[in-house]
Design a protein around this nucleic acid. Structure first.
Lengths: 349, 349
DNA sequence: GGGGGGAAGGTAATCGATTACCAATTGCGA
DNA sequence: TCGCAATTGGTAATCGATTACCTTCCCCCC
């Protein structure tokens, strides 16, 4: 026996389908008697509304699409889970897709989601340069919010973090704890926050260690690249005493190499990551890094999206959330702590 | 301007909607002229089929629901990504939900997915004992495949791994590399594979170290529990030289404690995990563990589900995939190698 | 030349809800 | 008592596709 429809309930209760619909949704007044009767009947028949039919009629699926670049980086699963939880409490479901860092696939996924009539789109662009077109196009059709990564030539709402501040805090911390010769290993040119972090590094390092500009290595946000780049770096520039990395995965790769070469961390080589994913506390020593407010990030993104779905124009809203420096064993100890900031940023364990 | 419908295409091309539908779907013959005409017109108008309307008519959404216990354990994001990729190539989308290890929430999620008319359900039960009712109920309505975790009192298809073999291989490897006093720290009673691993441990350890039965600690699959349990274990049983863990996260917690106590790994304490998630290679020493065939696992699960959706009865299919032992630094080196195998692989000098 | 079979096109029913529109009833004030 | 407004219920249109069913046409064979 197929599931009961609104028609069945109407027949059983002896009223019209319109009354059933109204009694259940409260869209319009219905006498208390009828309301009770309908609710009882619906319950008795085990009636459940048919979401697809409702979506067709209302042009609203109560589903949101999400596109992430991939899950190689454990930072994203966390965001996915947060988005799912937040959307659930707001009565919506999440269709999840991954672009696997491929702008073409990303465009396909966006178009698939559009075809599925999602009410809105949460997207973290896989390419600063090549994601823009598809995103801009879709954002003209349905509410769209970009999070964590921002694509060129787009005009959507955006929530990210203050990469520049995070990176300059790291540089500052390193300097105060005795670092003198810096290098930077980061993700590729494709990546928006990767570029921002690199730029922030290049800028904040200028008056501390001008030679560092010649020790910037860009590749991908993976542990493997961290290894490759670190090997090259330490061969070409053995004088380096501090490596700042574009993310934690790269930093782990650098630690692998340092360990293999018998370098002591942080005394011979101080290392920092970015993101504060869970592996940052598994390595030994644990990784000094920059923690991102993931919950706030997705909370804001979802909120912006739902407001846009409700008709508000949020396209001009660009939020950059503050990050938090997390000092762990992969950095030398403070030599001359800045007492004020230290109290605010040191992690207690 | 709203998006073009099949009606618009029909009007523009001067044919009926039926012809348009047929020309585009190929469900029935259409003259080559018409077919070309319709395709051109559709392209010109930017026509895209309305998935919701199609779903209503065909009672088929081409969407699959997935329920995972959570993402605290990095093992699951991996499965999610694999499922998403596999489903995409098979033309379906994925609605992802998390039960956050709560059977009640899990039941709600299942019911939400049912309401959304998903064509099938992939689920990893959060509780061996308390997930069964909801899963069994839904499996009577739509095709359902359980993966990785199995709930009591259900009759659905299932794909998991051979926990018992993995655990006994670990025990065997430990024995041959000199372990004498064993302990086990695992996940809670709620967890299906957790129980299987514990049972396999208890059984394979019997004739090697019968006292080990008194050194089994169960809690949750987290690093925190690993710490707590390890502290208790090493206080109560300082004689232990080997700890096998229910998963890698627990093992990492145990390593934290060992390091804090100044124990050397693996000489003072050998440690093994289970799952081979990426952190297993970040700790130092890296973690000896059991690697699961994640790709095969999800590939099979998706395949079973789609076959079920196509009408095949797969409910009796239960697959347990083989696992692979991964020996890393957290175990002592072999003392008495298996000579037979050694002869086959020894290098000539 | 008639008839049978197969292919193609069109009309309209259908999926299951919401909702525009209309009719009937009621309440209330003038 | 009449009339207006507010409230409630029902009928049927609607969302955008697919598809059952019917008609027409063409081909081919007897």
């Amino acid at each position: 026996m197929p599931r009961a429809t609104i028609k069945d309930v109407a027949a059983e209760a002896g009223v019209s389908t319109a009354t059933v619909s109204r009694a259940l949704s409260g869209a319009r007044g219905v006498t208390a008697t009828h309301k009770q009767l309908v609710q009882d009947t619906a319950l008795r028949l085990g009636y459940r509304p048919h979401t697809v039919a409702r979506a067709l009629r209302q042009s609203r699926t109560m589903v949101v699409g999400m596109v992430v670049p991939g899950i190689d980086n454990p930072f994203f699963p966390q965001l996915v889970e947060l988005a799912e939880a937040e959307l659930r409490t707001r009565g919506r479901a999440l269709i999840l897709t991954s672009s696997h860092d491929d702008p073409d696939l990303e465009a396909q996924q966006i178009s698939m989601l559009l075809d599925r009539q999602v009410d809105g789109l949460l997207i973290s662009a896989c390419s600063k340069a090549h994601s823009g077109a598809a995103i801009e196009k879709v954002s003209n059709t349905i509410p769209t919010v970009q999070f964590d990564q921002y694509a060129d030539s787009t005009t959507t709402a955006f929530v990210g973090v203050d990469d520049a501040s995070g990176m300059s805090q790291l540089v500052d911390l390193a300097r105060r704890s005795g670092s003198r010769k810096f290098a930077y290993i980061g993700g590729g040119e494709e990546n928006w926050s990767g570029l921002r972090r690199r730029d922030a590094f290049a800028e904040s390092i200028l008056d501390i260690d001008p030679t560092a500009a010649g020790r910037i290595y860009l590749g991908s946000f993976t542990r493997d690249f961290g290894k490759t780049a670190a090997e090259r770096l330490l061969r070409e520039h053995p004088e380096v005493d501090t490596v700042l990395c574009g993310n934690d995965l790269i930093a782990v790769g650098v630690m692998d190499v340092a360990r293999n070469l018998g370098l002591s961390i942080p005394d011979d080589l101080a290392i920092a990551g970015f993101d504060d994913i869970s592996v940052a506390t598994v390595s030994s020593p644990a990784l000094t890094t920059v923690s991102q407010p993931a919950q706030k990030l997705m909370g804001t993104a979802v909120d912006l999206l739902l407001r846009a779905i409700d008709g508000e124009d949020t396209t001009r809203i660009h939020e950059e959330l503050p990050v938090r420096l997390v000092q762990r064993g992969s950095f030398r100890h403070f030599v001359q702590p800045d007492t004020d900031r230290l109290n605010r940023t040191r992690e207690h364990s």
